[in-house]
Amino acid sequence: MGFAKYQEDIVSRYVGDFAMRPTQSPVSPPKAPTPNTKNQSDQRTKKMSSLKKFAVATPRPLPVIVLADASGSMGENGKIEALNAAMKDMVSTFAKESRLRAEIQVGLITFGGKAQMHLPLAAAHSVAGFAELKAEGVTPMGAAFDLARQLLEDKDRIPSRAYRPVLILLSDGQPTDDWEVPFKALCDSERAQKATRLAMAIGPDADEAMLRDFANDAEAPIFKAHNARDIHRFFRAVTMSVTTRTASQNPDLSTTFVVPPPDDDALDLDFQ
């Protein structure tokens, strides 16, 4: 060991070099001070668990159920294509949303020829994709209402801890089955009453009176779509009203469901 290195070691000086003691010394420190355990918990070792034992809360489901007209008439003027694309956009936006507070779930009931659960209610981020809707057949809306009511009342599929659902009904024509009783049963069911219900009338032939009865937001009358682009705008507004439920809220600014006018739609941004 060289001399310089020897000098670096303070302890070695204690041993050999008394000459370096300063002339004035501080008072002897208190002996055997208690170790600082005050800031520490002593029960932690008992509670200690292996990594896998930690659990976190599963997010509360927020069901969004779409009842979509897929009857033959939807095949005209690109309506069904617009609906497919708009649904896909909505699901992918939902999939990207934070799941810390709510898990947005999407279900799609279609009525075209027959009523069916086209996309069973599932977490948006787990939906890999769904079969494109095809416009065919009659408009069995009554049967679709029954399916929707069964889904809403099924506590296995929608547990009681779920946030109040969002129900969306869109149609371009008149129901072809016996719809009044199922419609009333759906609208009167406890969960559907709590739900946010939005409706879109596509084109001039839609049953606007019935859609108006379905929608329950006094400030958001039914939305009338005149073209395929309007279908997109409606779904954008639906997406926004669902996602902003968990985002910042400001009572000063209206958060009611409003579809922005097309010419003034600065927020309707498509990025390249």
Binding site: M20, R21, P22, P26
Partner: peptide, 24 residues
Amino acid sequence: ISLQRASDDKVVAVARRQRLKSES
């Protein structure tokens, strides 16, 4: 800066970068 050892109250000034050896 100075360092004081509790066992015998010895005090040394630390005037530059120095160390207490791991061995000690």
